[in-house]
Design a protein around this nucleic acid. Sequence first.
DNA 1: TTCCACATGTCGCCAGTCTACATGTAGGCT
DNA 2: AGCCTACATGTAGACTGGCGACATGTGGAA
Lengths: 111, 111
Amino acid sequence: MNTDALRGHMDALLLSVLEHEPLHGYAIIEALQQRSGGALSVPTGTVYPALRRLERVGHLTSAWATVGGRKRRTYRLTASGRAALAGERSAWQEFTSAIGAVLSPRPQHDA
Amino acid sequence: MNTDALRGHMDALLLSVLEHEPLHGYAIIEALQQRSGGALSVPTGTVYPALRRLERVGHLTSAWATVGGRKRRTYRLTASGRAALAGERSAWQEFTSAIGAVLSPRPQHDA
DNA sequence: TTCCACATGTCGCCAGTCTACATGTAGGCT
DNA sequence: AGCCTACATGTAGACTGGCGACATGTGGAA
């Protein structure tokens, strides 16, 4: 799976996966894959820039850590990020219900 | 509503709205708006090029008609378009379930 | 020493959506 | 007559953001 249809929903995904625990980029990618049952394979070229963008607008903060000799940049939700997540969730509801309403197969109208 | 998050789902919307009856561009825009309960306002600059693209790849055919002195280009689903619609529908299912799985608020894990 | 998993990052491409503009008819209202 | 709105189609160009490909480096196992 995984067309470029994710467009516009990446923020929601990233914020959601960071809701309960701070994670670093690589772990975020794995978390997305696991949570979606393997359906989502988000490439690094998408995730890292997106994380930086979310930090730039204040929805995330980051901190470096070294674990086992590996450098990680760990991201954490801010209050603003939490609010944004709530907004993304309701936007997602509206979005799916709107598209779903159009897409749902309706029986051929019979007189 | 209506961000550019429609990206990648326009084809599905257009094919779906044409499933049971041929329509012309202007009517398609109105149909999308009605079916979505007013949520979708797709601009002409999106719809007309998209229709032409779908015709180019063989999912639609078009024919001119004059109704009340107005020229209309009426689009109709082809067999290929019907197949594409089925594909779009199942892709939409997969898509929403994948994103939904990530987005759904999960309770804070407590020991 | 080779290879893979871990880990982060950038650059440039590109598809597709949107804004704004251009064009024209029909019909109602004043 | 003149104006406005709904109907109807279309294009050009800007913008956006996800993606593929590349670059870099560590730790550990074979």
